[in-house]
Simulated scan of single mutants.
Amino acid sequence: MATTTETISEYVHYHDGGIPGKRRVLTGVDAKPTFNAVPKIDMQRIYSPHLADRQQLADEVGAACRDIGFFYAVNHGIDEELLDQTFDAVKKYFDLPMEVKMECHNQKAEKFRGYEKFLEGKLDPSTRGDLKEGFLMGEDFTDPEQKLSPIPSLAATSKPRNQWPTHPTALFFRPAIYNYYNAMLSFSRRLLRIFALALALPEDHFDTLTTHPMTNVRAVHYPPQPSPADVGIGAHTDFCWFTLVCQSRTTSPALEVLNGNGMWIPVDHEPHTFVVNIADFLKLVTGGTWASTVHRVRNISKESGMGEERYSMPFFFSPNEDAKVSVLERFRKEGKEYDEFVVGEYFQQRLDIDRTTHLDRDGQVENTRA
């Protein structure tokens, strides 16, 4: 009697575009060509007055966006002292008593802005929750630091979106975050023009879509993980245009990106760099040509089996809330129809998914801390 041997495949599970997905782990003869490291790109040319220099940079950035979806932005030009001061403020904020942080609990805000407790996020349903705490702020036409005027077509822009702590021990936090926010916004506008060149478009192609962009800073604290079963944040893609990540020094990398073979590739802390990743909107407008790559955080040291205190400050950049986007003409296939998306509506749909994944069956936030 003939016998057959069935191969049991291993899969990596994640959220892609807000939808659960999985990727088979490929090894040996099944493995395909893919990346095994995140490239470093020298960004000094972003400030060059010469188009040829900026185009050369765009060519390198475009290759990374197509093949990987992640790259290190080396020599980004943002003052290191400002970054150090922001990290100091973030650490100081998360060390505050819980009752001070809970003044701005994100469940009080429509846009999910403010403080998020440990284990309140849960992108990976197989875990007890995301082992992190965070603080989210973003575009707010009522915050004077942003010098924005309400948009007549969006009445809601005149309402406060951010929450800021008012306790005397926490007043340092808002100005520190805004110093970082404004520096990252300025750099992001330059980077957006490099992306346009990389797509063979005029440098200013996206300018009309980003006159009042949707933006966020999420300050995050990842404590050491006591168990390999824990995860700092579950595997996911970002729902914005692109993300810039400034991460604190740790001995072992915690950020990991998923390659085409279902293998997790570490993204170490590198001095004087940001980690840049393409997100869902740029994947959308390029017809999937640019990669919105799955990533996660696992704060575990290979040496000790226990991670270190880790802090991260991702900056998320998106088009205007009322902008409409679709696949660029050069990426369209003849005879195929393409939908147009209103940025704010899509963003809110994704936010609602993220917001409900961490609620228990009774709709109440779990208050457990690891």
Rank of each mutant, 00 (worst) to 15 (best):
L83P: 00
A89S: 15
R113C: 06
Q55A: 09
G138Y: 04
E116W: 11
F112G: 08
P144H: 12
M98V: 13
P152Q: 00
E133K: 02
G121D: 11
L96C: 03
G114E: 07
S153Y: 06
P144N: 09
V74K: 10
Q56Y: 08
V74D: 09
Y93K: 03
F70Y: 15
K101F: 07
S126P: 00
M102L: 15
R66D: 12
K132V: 00
G69K: 05
F141W: 15
T142Y: 14
I151R: 04
G69Y: 04
T127I: 01
V74P: 06
C104F: 06
L148S: 07
F141N: 14
D53T: 06
G138I: 07
G129M: 00
K117P: 12
M102K: 15
D143K: 09
I78L: 06
R54K: 10
D95K: 10
D143M: 10
S149F: 12
L57G: 02
D84S: 13
K108S: 03
L57W: 01
A89E: 11
D79W: 04
Q85M: 10
G114T: 10
D84L: 12
E133H: 02
L57I: 03
K108L: 04
E81Q: 14
K101C: 09
G129H: 00
D53A: 09
E99H: 15
G134Y: 05
Q107H: 14
P97W: 08
Q107W: 12
T142I: 11
R113F: 07
P144G: 07
S153M: 06
E81A: 12
C104S: 11
P125S: 03
L57H: 01
V100Q: 06
P125M: 00
K108C: 02
A63S: 14
M102A: 14
K117T: 11
K117G: 13
I78K: 01
H76A: 03
T127H: 01
D67C: 09
C104K: 04
E120K: 07
F135M: 06
R66F: 13
N75H: 08
L82T: 01
L131M: 02
Q107Y: 14
K122F: 10
F118M: 14
P152T: 00
P125F: 04
M98N: 12
G62A: 08
N75I: 04
I68G: 04
